[in-house]
């Protein structure tokens, strides 16, 4: 089963990190996901640009386009990993490992219902 591990944190706080800290967290995360990657079980990994660049489109007859992220929240979605895990436990364990390299924020573990990587849509 595929899982999404969604990384949430206070964007303004992460922006206030010194560059060295950001680099260190990213390289630790890369190290943590390497075993999964080596087994060919690491899907796309994404980091998102800040929410200042976000636009939100509200559904309806004439969808309205709004500036900013979908909701004003204390923590923002910063990026995510997609992994292939045998069990839910395995996905949570990786999320724990990833979370242990940061002092703030959360990792949300969500099983994937449908996955299209672009190659199977042709």
């Amino acid at each position: 089963m595929q899982y999404a591990i969604l990384c949430y944190d206070n964007e303004a706080e992460v922006e206030a990190w010194p560059r060295a800290k950001l680099d260190e967290v990213i390289s630790r995360h890369q190290l943590a996901t390497r075993p999964v990657a080596e087994q060919g079980k690491l899907g796309p990994v994404l980091r998102l640009l800040p929410t200042s660049t976000a636009m939100t489109v509200r559904s309806g007859d004439k969808p309205v386009v709004l500036d900013g992220p979908f909701a004003e929240t204390k923590e923002q979605l910063l990026g995510f990993w997609i992994i292939d895990a045998e069990t839910h436990e395995e996905a949570v364990a990786l999320a724990q490992e990833l979370a242990s390299h940061k002092e703030t924020g959360s990792m949300e573990v969500r099983p994937v219902l449908m996955y299209m990587d672009g190659s199977n849509t042709k």
Partner: peptide
């Protein structure tokens, strides 16, 4: 870098 760097960052951004 100090292990408590996150506190600095939290205080700076909350200021």
């Amino acid at each position: 870098m100090s292990e408590l760097g996150w506190i600095d960052a939290a205080l700076t951004s909350a200021r």
